[in-house]
Nucleic acid binder design. Structure first.
Lengths: 350, 350
DNA sequence: GTGAAAGCGCTAACAT
DNA sequence: ATGTTAGCGCTTTCAC
């Protein structure tokens, strides 16, 4: 590795001059001619700056810590990580990813991140929930991703779960469905309650009365299939809003058993958690895509804004929500719905 | 942040003594009494070592670069990353994850990783293919994960695709299936060809003649559903080996349309790419789990072995392939099959 | 305009 | 058994 010292010697100037030039601080301080010679030498010698040495001196590393759990087992973790990673790359930062299962491990990982001098931290959850940022991060730059934050002291970004339920149901109404069922999650997680509320709100807005017999909350496998079968038999819906793709499965099976076709006889809207349904079932299923990539992207922009103490503008093309949607689907049920994000700034400034 | 210097002053010794003690190099060199005082002070003052300063001095960072593409869009990227991250944590390393789409970006990211002084690199692919390690990594410690490497100059780990096809088909034979279909991928990727070969090998071993009418290679959606329907109608299989879970879907739909039950009337074995089928369809579908977590784990152990120039033993409990399998499934089709890994050492040593 | 010098926090060879 | 010293590669003040 070529060092500044070597470039300086080869050019016949001092290291300070080289430093100035190579950091583009030469304007009005170094003779343009000298600057050019330095740049030429540096290039010729293949000089690469040493991030460690710079960081040691400046106590800024341009390293961001990405802290989360359950990354290995949730199918959309990659999107979150990569949104963050892409934004980091764009802003000249590196992302160190740590997974933590259990508090002890979390503290150890946070300590490690601190030893490497991370400038800030992304605290991500794999399911939308109320997150508690650990005390060890309290006074540091932190942004919460894919979760709501309890205290409001940290900026957070999460999917607009209510809107998902509302949009999905609204589309089913517009598609002409008369009896719209809700296939929910029996786990009482945040997303479940909010999507259900959105569903009810859209029904009400359409002048319909919510019928509890059209809603069911299920887990997986046989039990779920039986529950959906029961609902279909008892209430004869013609439209379905499914908590996620896994739940939509059972509706598909119920349709197939009856010789009915989703997208023709029934309309189904589901949240595409697992990234399999969109490719497997399109154009029959209408999918709502959870914007994990965008959340990661947004979170990093926010975090770097805090670290650098200035507002950073995202390119329009790169901004959350701006990615090209899937092509419209040629079915009675509507096309892909893009999920809005809920962005919360911290109440206390950093 | 407390520094060694501060600890030294507070204890009344020199920094070198503190360094020796805090790095556990004091045995026989520092008086036990002094060592204890140093340790006490360090603890009291909340001393944390500065990884940057150490790395600058030792030119070893304990940072590993994880390079890959398509992480955002593939559902199993998280497993690979986290297997790597967990192994790294166990061995005292940090993982910097970079995603690269396009060669230019890849080179920029590799350069960044080098500036941060990464000790070694994981070169991962999201689908098993023949990977070309970029020339910029040629002389450095590199391990290839989830792909085969072209030259044999680098260690690589990938799923044993042939074995997947063989195992799956063998189980179907043992389950008593008479006519076993293969629902493949029309994309001629490595995994497709190898799994198909495994399927044919198992058939042959069972003394059966491969019937081309029982094999179909499909993409997605209506076309795939139609193809599977056609195969079922024409050849009346009673067992199915599906290239992946997405393809198994169409078999399920075909079954439902006939009022047949998978796990009773038909046996289905599929590779669980998307991590949704195991939870949604169990106990009806037999899933082969792709060991992405284990691959990441193995790759890091291998990489660190190379970096540190010694063979590292993995805990039995943590070793690839040793994770607890899902509970056996109570169906005619067999339980979860754990996928073997193919491990290749480099032909040239590093 | 340019260079000398100090020092970020640490390790390691060399003295004592 | 402990301390002194000399950097690792860089940034940044302060002289000239």
């Amino acid at each position: 590795m070529t060092t500044m010292k070597e470039v300086a010697q080869a050019t016949g100037v001092s290291v300070s001059t080289v430093s100035l030039v190579l950091n583009n601080l030469d304007k009005g301080r170094v003779k343009p001619d000298t600057a050019e010679r330095v740049r030429g030498q540096a290039k010729a010698m293949g000089y690469r700056s040493n991030a460690l040495a710079r960081s040691l001196r400046t106590s800024r590393t341009r390293i961001l810590g990405f802290i989360s759990q359950e990354v290995a087992t949730t199918p959309f973790a990659g999107g979150l990580i990569m949104g963050a990673q892409d934004a980091a790359a764009k802003l000249g930062y590196m992302l160190i990813t740590v997974s933590t299962d259990g508090v002890a491990q979390e503290e150890r990982q946070i300590a490690a991140l601190k030893r490497y001098g991370a400038d800030g931290f992304l605290y991500a959850k794999m399911y939308d929930r109320v997150a508690d940022v650990p005390a060890s991060l309290a006074k540091l730059p932190v942004v919460v991703a894919n979760a709501s934050e309890r205290t409001g002291h940290f900026p957070a970004v999460a999917p607009d779960e209510f809107q998902i339920g509302y949009d999905a149901t609204r589309r089913l109404v517009e598609a002409g469905c008369e009896r719209i069922a809700y296939i929910g999650d029996k786990d009482p997680i945040l997303a479940q309650g909010l999507r259900f509320m959105g569903y009810k709100a859209a029904l009400e807005e359409a002048g319909r009365v919510f019928d509890p017999a059209l809603a069911v909350h299920v887990g997986f496998n046989q039990e779920a299939l039986d529950a959906v079968e029961g609902l279909v038999r008892a209430s004869e819906p013609d439209g379905f809003f499914c908590f996620n793709d896994a739940r939509a499965w059972y509706v598909y099976e119920a349709a197939a058993r009856r010789g009915l076709r989703v997208g023709a006889d029934w309309s189904v809207v589901g949240v595409d958690n697992h990234r399999v349904f969109a490719e497997t079932l399109a154009p029959r299923l209408t999918t709502i895509e959870l914007p994990h990539y965008e959340m990661g992207y947004w979170a990093v922009y926010k975090l770097v804004s805090i670290i650098e103490g200035k507002t950073l503008e995202m390119d329009e093309a790169e901004a959350p929500g701006a990615r090209a949607p899937l092509p419209a689907l040629d079915v009675p049920s509507p096309a892909l719905i893009h999920c809005r994000l809920v962005e919360k700034d911290s109440v206390a400034s950093h």
